[in-house]
């Protein structure tokens, strides 16, 4: 038995130090030098060193008609609780799911009575993380008239902004096209990172979304 005890204990300690201390510390050190913004949560700042406005990767709740609405979030006790992500885990045949979808459709219709277009499904179903920063381009376009009316701005101006914030599939193939709701709403408010700088790698947005600059 003693023939096993020493190698087991010593190997366990050595491998723990190597993979549990040195390895994560090395990755953290490389990350802090090479990708400091990404490593800390991709925070959005209006100017370098300024106060963060949010994270480019984490959605926020919106219910005011003048903002684009994000996807429903199942986090508790408040939607888009970024310290406790969660999906609804409602089964496909659970009546609570159909009821929730029905209520969300009704809320969208109430905020935008003239809009009879079918509602894109992602806008009325909860995301997996409860923190989804995106909606589909269809879901963003669905809301253009409402946002334009609430802001007394021409609809085609708002639609152009949506187009500018629409990200295509990566390399034209991977994933799905999408619109980042928080970045779009910040741009509507004229806050957010200035779009003119967006293509620069140092800007909070441009490094991941080169098409924002168009």
């Amino acid at each position: 038995m003693r023939a096993y005890v020493r190698p087991a204990i010593v190997m366990f300690v050595l491998l723990t130090v190597l993979t549990g201390v040195i390895y994560p510390a090395a990755v953290t050190a490389v990350a802090a030098v090479a990708f400091p913004r990404e490593a800390r949560g991709s925070l959005i700042r209006a100017e370098p060193g300024g106060r963060p406005l949010g994270s480019a990767l984490i959605g926020q709740p919106f219910s005011d008609p003048k903002y684009f609405w994000p996807r429903p979030s199942a986090t508790a006790p408040v939607a888009y609780n970024a310290s406790a992500g969660s999906g609804s885990n409602l089964g496909p045949t659970n009546p609570a799911l159909a009821d929730a979808v029905r209520a969300r459709v009704a809320a969208l219709r109430a905020a935008d009575p003239g809009n009879v277009a079918p509602v894109p499904v992602d806008l009325v179903t909860a995301s997996a993380s409860g923190l989804d920063p995106h909606v589909s381009p269809a879901a963003a376009r669905f809301q253009v008239d409402r946002v334009a009316r609430a802001r007394r701005r021409p609809a085609d101006e708002v639609a152009r902004l949506v187009d500018r914030f629409t990200e295509p599939r990566t390399f034209g193939v991977l994933g799905e096209p999408r619109v980042n709701v928080l970045l779009l709403n910040l741009a509507l408010d004229g806050r957010g990172p200035p779009a003119a700088n967006a293509a620069e790698t140092s800007s909070p947005v441009g490094s991941r979304w080169p098409d924002v600059a168009r």
Binding site: E38, L43, Q60, L182, R191, R208
Partner: peptide
């Protein structure tokens, strides 16, 4: 990390909600 996966020993971040 280059794509945005976090890697830090710092505490949780706090940001204001736009709405």
């Amino acid at each position: 990390v280059s794509q945005g996966v976090v890697q830090t020993f710092g505490a949780y971040e706090t940001v204001p909600l736009v709405q």
